[in-house]
Amino acid sequence: MAEITLVEAVRLALARAMEEDESVLVLGEDVGVDGGVFRATDGLIRRFGPDRVRDTPLAEAVIAGVSVGLAVQGFRPVAEIQFMGFIYPTMDQMVNHAARFRNRTRGRLTCPMVLRAPYGGGIHAPEHHSESNEAMFAHMPGLRVVIPSSPARAYGLMLAAVRDPDPVVFLEPKRIYRAIKEEVADDGSEQPLDTCFVLREGTDVTLVTWGAMSVETLAAAEALAETEISAEVIDVATLKPLDMATILASVEKTGRCVIVHEAALTGGFGGEIAARLAEHGLMSLLAPVQRVTGHDIVMPLPRLEDQYMPGTDRVVAAARRAVEFA
């Protein structure tokens, strides 16, 4: 078994999916000859040919719309948007069409497509190359929103996303595209699209996160352990539909919760988790839910970026506050 990075795991899963199902097509700007801006599709065109791996013109709205058209005919398109900041023109198609075919046709037509995009900051890129707007998609009924946090998770979740009968928005944390290496078996086994994963068990506080922030959150748990605070870390992985049972079970045990995401605070997905804790877990809570997030500002370049990104220190401090509260 080889040790691979997250971006390599995405590629491995795409190749596997294309190998096992001829209806899987890959399309997007520069995904073919160039192999994608982050090389996520590198080599696929050589292996599967330009019919199945398509360099499209520069036209995001149509990339999404064409994918919907293909998908309702039984294809399984995997479309790449180069950066999440370019995803907005696709929202019309994703929200008004991809997300609603099943509903409008009362299940007679489905839309088994994947819209992939690298997302998130911390790579010293300008604003629209750094944003994390997962909550905008999670808000829309009819879409799954999936965010892997490690190579193995990326492989398993991507395979599940391609095989899923409904549209999946698959957001890849580009800051850790190459930061972590892990052994990943290319055995075609998928990971569930409706489950939060417990990355580390603990008893005093639950740290809930997803994507690249899992790195800082795990580091925070490590630091907290040195001061005798035992933190449980949950990787949400699939934001929609949300596996609240796993989060509630954890908070029942710890009584405290810190939610960590790099997207802006207001309207961020952390708010949804906090609201559900208030609705269904109030009696378990010993302390107010804490959120450690990005600020309600435009992502700044490049010298202030470190100030924007929630760091391990802020996670540790929030967990301490929760523990000291009660």
Partner: peptide
């Protein structure tokens, strides 16, 4: 220093940017 290479403007020179999209 918050915009970078793609996002600069000058009202006096009627230069309306630099746009990344």
């Amino acid at each position: 220093g918050k915009g970078g290479s793609m996002h600069m403007f000058s009202k006096e020179k009627n230069f309306y940017g630099g746009h990344g999209i």
